[in-house]
Design a protein around this nucleic acid. Structure first.
Length: 239
DNA sequence: TACTGATCATTC
DNA sequence: GAATGATCAGTA
């Protein structure tokens, strides 16, 4: 099977360092990727498929970054710095609903109390997000899962208000040294969960008595309900 | 079965 | 070890 667009997709990741493409071109690149299976895209970019789904965590996200010409991988800047756009894959189940939470950013437990929501990493990460739905249903073999139709999103005022409430609640608790009391049950849409290599990973924090202690690194995650509503908004606008 | 807490791969 | 990219898998 050969598509006329295949060469242009190969070229996309070769021209990545120029970073001269426009937002319109980025969206056009996304359209050309829609419908490809993981295996087809891996073949085009000459990337090996992961042996197991466990080993494939993050793999499709990095593959799509390459296909789109993002080069900021593992740097604390947006995926497309010249456009201020963050790329996020969004795994969806057989019903088209997000099947997982979305990692936003890690939490600097020692310093976040000095931040305001408007200057926070959460705010900047979510200002402009290019959501790329991908099939994640466990009944579909990994290699056969396909890419969906990407959508560019920015939070509405109401969404920002809820995010701010959740963010401030978490930061208030961290500022009081109550990070250990924060469970994934907190937060309407933005939750705090462990984010580390394992439960043995440790980072510094200040506890309720003002003592320096070691604790699990934490991160902010978006609940699936929140990303579901983003997809719904988009569909209602495009149908 | 949805959700929380834990974990996996790669890069720097 | 900490940043990037996330999903796994046991349990409530």
């Amino acid at each position: 099977m050969y598509r006329r667009e295949d060469d242009s997709i190969r070229r996309q990741h070769q021209t990545c360092e120029l970073m001269d493409f426009t937002q319109a071109e980025l969206l056009s690149r996304c359209e050309r990727l829609a419908g490809f299976s993981f295996a087809e895209l891996a073949d085009l970019l000459q990337m090996p498929l992961p042996a197991t789904t466990t080993q494939g965590k993050g793999w499709i996200g990095q593959l799509i970054e390459r296909a789109l010409g993002a080069y900021a991988a593992s740097k604390p800047i947006p995926d497309f710095p010249h456009l201020g756009i963050e790329l996020k894959t969004l795994p969806v189940n057989a019903k088209g609903l997000p099947s997982e939470s979305t990692f936003v950013c890690s939490i600097p437990l020692m310093t976040i109390k000095h931040e305001r929501f408007e200057t926070s990493t959460v705010y900047h990460k979510l200002k402009r997000v290019l959501w790329f739905p991908i099939e994640a249903d466990k009944s579909i073999p990994f290699a056969k899962r396909r890419l969906g139709n990407a959508l560019l999103w920015s939070p509405q005022e109401e969404e920002l208000a809820v995010l701010r409430t959740d963010w401030e609640e978490a930061v208030d608790m961290i500022a009081r040294g109550e990070f250990a009391k924060i469970t994934a049950h907190f937060g309407q849409v933005l939750q705090v969960r462990p984010k580390g290599a394992s439960a043995k990973s440790l980072t510094e924090a200040i506890d309720e008595d003002g003592q320096r202690v070691k604790t699990m690194p934490r991160g902010f995650y978006l609940r699936p309900d929140f990303t579901h509503k983003i997809l719904q908004q988009h569909y209602s606008l495009t149908v």
